[in-house]
Amino acid sequence: MLVGVPKEIKNHEYRVGLTPAAVKEFAAHGHNIVVETQAGAAIGFSDDDYIAAGATIASTAQQVFAEAEMIVKVKEPQPNECKMLRKGQTLYTYLHLAPDPVQTELLIASGATCIAYETVTDDRNGLPLLAPMSEVAGRMSVQAGAHYLEKANGGSGTLLGGVPGVAPGKVLVIGGGVVGTNAAKMALGLGADVTILDRSLPRLRQLDDIFNGQVKTVFSTVDAIEQYSAEADLVVGAVLIPGATAPKLLNAAHIKAMKPGAVVVDVAIDQGGCFETSKATTHQDPVYVVDDVVHYCVANMPGGVARTSTIALNNATLPFGLALANKGAKQALLDDKHLLNGLNVHEGKVTYKAVVDALGESLGLTYTPAEEALK
């Protein structure tokens, strides 16, 4: 199979779909790889590195899209990229379709087979291709929050770890999954007073064991969100419903009741955000203020540490990518129920129910089960 890797074009996005090491794996399986020039240069992967690994270099994205049978990316395709996709071609990347009607319509129109990293599953009901970026984003959320709590950056001037004689800052993490756990680790490491809210008692028990009682675990209710957000210096939104629009857990009244100079970091912004006042921002212009509360809602947070993120992502995506190339998309999807869960759009049909639930009424979409669409 001819596998194509275009350069990412989203604002301040420096990750790349395949590392040179991953290219070498594809080449070892007999596949040809075409990489757009400078696709990985910003994070230390030169064109010469890709050539040494077995790739050929294309001068333009148009050439990559025109030649490749499978496109491997990181972020969702932008409108001009969607328009270069075609029937019979496979797109393998993050999609986040539920809050993005424009991309959804363009992918339907393309006729391509579109597989979303974020909805591929595993035997433990996890999301193995989302997990590494969730780990990165969870850790970055506290770094970002601590930075914007500094007075010069718009915050209240609170040091999360405090100092002897001064109480530490209070961090509220809403959601105890991969993002929330990693956010709590970082916040605890800085010496903050950390509380995690979650609606799963078994998960709260696990977190209590993981942190050996050093983190407060609280069952998430409307009252708990109201109480703990009002006391917090930093709130991290870490709630995910796979493939669906994120629930709005902090409303405008909650934001208004927070301390002046508090910071909220919405890690769920890729899926529409879990705060009512959230709107997507970029690394170029990452924050804005609502009711004296600093909002950090960067939609590609892991892109800020692009080298670490790219390597971590490739470690997870490579086995599935090789299966798609070795068997062809249709057979690979039918052979693996977990990869099949990643199929969101196939030849004009929407095959992921949460996308139809979010956009079906506005776009007139109907749901086609993935296996039925393929057969």
Rank of each mutant, 00 (worst) to 15 (best):
L91Q: 02
L130G: 05
G321L: 00
G273N: 07
Y94W: 07
N182W: 08
K7I: 01
G273K: 03
G145I: 02
A55F: 05
K185C: 10
G161L: 06
P132S: 09
D208W: 14
M140C: 11
G328N: 05
P132Y: 13
R205I: 15
A112I: 00
S46Q: 14
I225W: 04
V298K: 10
N300Y: 01
G4I: 00
A58L: 10
R307D: 12
L207E: 10
L322M: 15
H29S: 13
Y296L: 15
S278E: 07
I33W: 01
E276T: 07
G40K: 11
F65A: 04
V298R: 09
D122F: 04
A58D: 08
C274M: 04
T56N: 14
S309W: 02
K337W: 06
V23N: 08
M258R: 12
D292F: 07
G237N: 04
R86T: 13
G175K: 09
G243R: 00
I196Q: 04
N344P: 00
L197Y: 13
F219K: 13
S46V: 05
G175H: 07
V287F: 05
A232N: 12
V166F: 12
V179E: 11
D208P: 04
A230T: 06
K87V: 01
V179P: 08
C274Y: 00
M70W: 08
A280S: 13
G40R: 06
R124Q: 15
A329C: 09
G40F: 09
R86L: 11
K151L: 14
G4D: 00
A66L: 07
T19D: 10
P202Y: 15
A257I: 01
N125E: 15
E118D: 12
I210D: 13
L340M: 13
L127P: 02
I115K: 04
T195R: 10
P260M: 15
I174A: 03
R307K: 14
H338G: 00
P302K: 14
G169K: 08
A244I: 00
T317E: 07
V166A: 14
E8L: 03
V3W: 02
K248P: 07
D122A: 07
R199S: 10
K256H: 14
A131H: 08
G328Y: 04
G176M: 10
A28D: 13
